[in-house]
Design a protein around this nucleic acid. Structure first.
Lengths: 194, 194, 194, 194
DNA sequence: GATGAATGAGAATTCATTCAT
DNA sequence: TATGAATGAATTCTCATTCAT
């Protein structure tokens, strides 16, 4: 329900925008408060401290992100289709939220180790989704079982993540979604001709 | 050459250690100076500012890193062999410098946007090495020419980088080098069985 | 009477406890409100501001304190007996309210100058009681008239106050009342043997 | 030597003035720095934190205070003369430093419990001086041995302290030193006529 | 070249108080 | 009366950088 804890949502949305626009270190709490149309002190009724805003942003957004991805994947049958859908959803969702893309690809990585750990905990859920696709692929004899599945997942996530980061660093100047098939092809068949 | 001055090197080496041990945010200039056995002010005879230390660390270390990689690659013939060597060199060199690995994979990414740009400029040289391998592969008809080579490179670098980051985050507890062949196989033939 | 309203008393009692337990600076209005089982805002229906709570605590408690002291004194005849009774009452009453003792001897002295002035105004009533005993003693030719009575009162109050503070600072570990006679003796005859 | 750590002394002196004039809570570090003609940051080269300034003020000033008192006392023979001298020195020294008097009698007592403990540790030295006079008096059969010497000391210190506080609260409008003999008389022979 | 004492800008957080309900 | 969510002012301390020696 949108009316639930309206200030909480206001602050989350304001934080995404402010951090994307100014970068993490230049995003003073007072700036976020102003953007959210609340008093500085109000922030602390909803968040423990500044880091808590950041981790909450990530948790909230990533939660939606993963949820939608899982929904879309569940409509597909094969591991290959599911992988294609995952890439597509990943690109689509970040393309639709340019601010969020900046935050996840650049700003969030500037945070302190403790915060990184929290972020990785949330990220773990997403990696688990990739793992489950790979597991299915192996079980159904589609994906190779001669290499550690964890390395496969690292290739899949590493590739997707790097393509998104490149796109963000190029100021999101080209349509990310156009690369879906190329990336899927590459991951599936490798870079070799035969 | 200016860079042969002993204090310059002292400071670079001290910086790598201090950042790896204390993390980016807890690495005050005075701490680096103390470790390097120089006065705080001396730092500024060799570096423009704190960011300049960091970028210099990266430039120096990455310079060596790339140089050695190129040397090793030049002894190989085919694109495939060169790729294998690149992965091997990448893993080997970071395995031998655990401090440097922490700095490049985690700490340096906490820096401000401007610094990240500088770092990416240095990184560009490395990406160019990968690009040249891919170009050779395409020219020699080994690597597929039906996808944008830039995306291929993103897969290659993204995969290597993600595997290294995972290894660092797991406190470097397993031998990274063992994964060389698996990663090369995956990149070459993809994750599919056929 | 306004002061009979139950919430008023609740807040006063809560304030004494909270201040004694947490110290002056850690006694937030919200903490006092919670202890008193009222809402933060309710405090302001009964007290002008936070200082008003504190001064009211002191006024209420000191009012009782003085009242009882006067009652007890009135049953005595001579200045000497009255002084003895005053010391006894002082020690007894604070011994029975360890929280109050902490608040009066330590915490309340941490307050701002304006508040201290208010407190001194209340304290004045108590000093007047001492003054009246001294005056009686002088009139009845028991107490020396060759020194300024104000100084006598300062010795009496200073001595009592210092002994109580010492006792509070020693965590009230010994029975304060045991000292009644010694203190009375000392004040009366001085520290000299003859 | 006055030239030793000049900034340290500057800051101490500035702190006494600023705290006396504005009160402890209104004495921002920046205000002290400005008065001392140093930058805010310089304060932290000499003091751990704001509390450390306050305790250092007390330690320095009290150190001098006690030292001079001991010197003066050592020139006297009997316990009675020594006590007279102690009172005289106490009054004299505080009369000469009105700012310091305000700080010791009012502002320092507003500090937090941890700080109070530190202050009491310093104060202990002074109480020891009083104790030693009392001990001598007892040994030489001048001072009564039928009461706990600690209570005698509490009377002596409590009386002196209270007379000074009263004088400070009355804006130091009368000459404190005039009371020396009266106070000595009272402490020695008590308030009774015979 | 080398030093290190001095500088001073910059920001998160608390908590007394208000006021719409 | 009573509530409690919202307010926003106010201040310490850190640390990159300078510059007189």
């Amino acid at each position: 329900m949108i009316k639930e804890r309206p200030k909480y949502r206001q602050i989350i949305e304001a934080a995404v925008e402010v951090i994307a626009e100014n970068g993490y270190h230049a995003s003073q709490v007072s700036k976020i408060a102003k953007r959210a149309n609340v008093a500085d002190g109000t922030i602390y009724l909803y968040f423990k401290n500044k880091e808590d805003i950041l981790i909450s942003v990530f948790r909230e957004k990533m939660g939606m992100f993963i949820e939608k991805t899982i929904e879309a994947i569940n409509e597909k049958e094969t591991a290959s289709e599911k992988l294609l859908t995952l890439i597509e959803m990943h690109y689509n969702q970040l393309s639709e939220s340019p601010h969020l893309a900046i935050v996840t690809q650049l700003e969030l990585r500037q945070s302190k180790p403790e915060l990184r750990k929290e972020i990785n905990r949330v990220l773990k859920t997403y990696l688990n989704v990739i793992d489950s696709i790979i597991d299915q692929g192996i079980k159904e004899n589609d994906i190779r079982n001669d290499v550690n599945p964890k390395i496969i997942r690292q290739m899949v996530f590493g590739t997707i993540d790097e393509t998104v980061t490149s796109w963000v660093m190029k100021s999101q100047r080209y349509p990310l979604v156009e690369q879906v098939n190329a990336v899927h092809q590459l991951l599936t068949y490798g870079l070799f001709k035969k």
